[in-house]
Amino acid sequence: MTDLNLEKTFYEFIKTIATGIPEDIYTTIKGAYEKEDNPVAKTQLKAILEDMEIACKKKRPICQDTGTPYLWIEIGEDFPVKSTKVIQQFTNALRKVTKEGYLRPNAVDPLYFKNSGDNTGRYIPWIHVEPVPGDKLKVYLMTKGGGSEAPSTLVMSTPLKGFENLKKTVIDAIARAGALPCPPVIVGVAIGAGADIVMSLAKKALLRPIGDRHPDPKAAKIEEELLKALNKLEIGPHGFGGKLTALDVKFDYSYRHPATFAIGVVTSCWATRRGIIEISPDGSSKMLTRHLRLVDGECKII
């Protein structure tokens, strides 16, 4: 074990996520803006693009709801820093970014109505740690907005009605929520053995980039068909109609119990702030996702 300190790396990482929209979302919205012929939907897409550009240029949060931090840590068995230290250093960086006004303090004690003021608290950030072979550390971060948690749905289906209920659940969840989750949304869908498994997989699926298809052909077909169906709802940006209601559908599954068919649906707003960083044993790091970032006074995708 070394005394490698990753706080600075995490600090920059969190700031990048808060202010730099991911490339896939930026280019998808830009493409949709050019194709949209509904005038009100078009004004919304334009406002969204302007917002992303101002956030980048002025290094400001993309949305004032800077979300709840979700972390997925893949730590190599030979990575020189213990996972407890990694979490501690990440949490310190999170507090600093919050203090500097890049994140709104969003962690509220539900029993005592007290905001911790620094985005940390009981079980927050919410962290998954997975040991993996090798000597690298990979951190996936999503700062997940509160409004887009609204359509989240869990259905415990019987296996015989499984796929029928899956279709119903996804369409109803998005139709019912209307403009509330800040569409165009990304929709995470999962099926599996139990309630917690599917909700967890559905949320994690939101990390995959737009346009990326599940490697299993049946799963890929589910993604594509649900996406097509959701866009026929024509809710559109902020509920003003038009072609783009869902940016993408991301599907995942676990093996199920013979008697269960759990269905989980989770959505994320257009301002899905997520990214991945990989850290080597010598402390050097690289971003595995590209974002709209400020380089020499100009906003570029890097």
Binding site: A47, I48, D51, I54, K58, R60, C63, C182, P237, H238
Partner: peptide, 13 residues
């Protein structure tokens, strides 16, 4: 009237 949900940086501007 609604302002584009999520466009916090644009609003601040």
């Amino acid at each position: 009237a609604v302002f584009t949900g999520g466009a916090g940086a644009l609003a601040a501007d």
